[in-house]
Simulated scan of single mutants.
Amino acid sequence: MVKRLLKIQDANWVKRVTLWRHVKDALFIMIGVVMASIGLKAFLLPNGFFDGGAMGMSLLLELLTPVNLSVLIILVNLPFILLGARQVSVIFAVKSTLAIFGLALLVHFIELPTITADKLLIAVFGGFFLGSGIGFAIRGGAVIDGTEVLAISVSRRSSLTVGDFITVFNVCLFIVAAFFVNLETAMYSMLTYFSASKTVDFIINGVEEYLGVMIMSQYSEEIKSMISHDLGRGVTVLKSDGGYGANAKLLPDRKVLFCVITRLEVTKMLSEIDKLDPKAFVIQYPIKDTKGGMIKKRPLH
């Protein structure tokens, strides 16, 4: 369909973009598999710690059963992969299958020295490496921990959100761990989970979170010029109709400015807006990601 809509000379461009996207996905997935295997082999496995989610379930079963962890990683994630094929796409399921098999092979065959015996360092840095692996795999369009796929499916059939389900799932997992293993290991493993989850957020969203900003002011032209020329950011002008107060009658056709900036830039923008119109009405809200436009791009994007 895309090729029919584009001119013939643009077909090669489409192929190059598609190829580069596949190369980036493969690179991210490979980095994710390596990072996760380092977290498992150098930190968590030698000390009997585990994480949350499907990976945490695999690690817990490895402690309670004689089954090899490599086999458990595949078996535990297999239902999530099949669910992902139905809920997301077949390509997603194929990528996830390759990533999980790659992780299982590395966990089975590589040997890494134990870096530290300090339990706090093990929990924090084990979670960091494992979370980095999960985050990079998601960047590549795959998962090595399929809990979120199940959470999405449950959220569509119940009042639970994705975050609610993951929280409930992990609370139950840590309660089982405290009962069958010991309370201290479960508590340190909770630190591992928190470290991993924060690392995943950082890898996916980056340090510079995007904010959508909407500005309503009678000096919209001056503010638009400031954003475009002084801040060097793109701005979109939306036509609006006032609905309340005296200004709604005086200015029935007003302009609303919309732009996307990083959180690190918002203070400067608000300061510049105050200089032009202290009474301007400004709305801010988080944006997960953007593509194109005059946006300062984050690393790894």
Rank of each mutant, 00 (worst) to 15 (best):
G232T: 01
K279V: 10
F281M: 13
F174C: 11
R86F: 10
G133Q: 04
Q218T: 14
M1T: 00
K41P: 07
E111V: 06
D201E: 07
L44E: 04
M35S: 11
M190Y: 00
F165D: 10
S155C: 14
G52R: 03
V235S: 05
H108K: 08
S189G: 03
S197H: 01
K7F: 05
Q9L: 10
L44D: 06
V143M: 14
L69R: 00
W13V: 13
I100N: 04
H22E: 13
P286C: 10
D164C: 09
M35V: 08
V67H: 03
Q284S: 14
P66L: 10
V260M: 07
L300E: 01
M226R: 01
F128Q: 06
Y188F: 07
A11K: 05
M216E: 10
I204T: 02
A178K: 01
L82W: 01
R233M: 03
E209I: 12
A123S: 14
F101G: 06
I223V: 12
I152N: 13
S217H: 04
C172V: 13
L183E: 03
V124P: 13
V213E: 04
A178F: 01
L251M: 06
L130M: 09
I287V: 15
F128S: 09
T147K: 12
G293N: 06
Q9M: 06
V107M: 08
G242L: 13
I223K: 03
R139C: 15
K41A: 07
L270Q: 12
H22A: 10
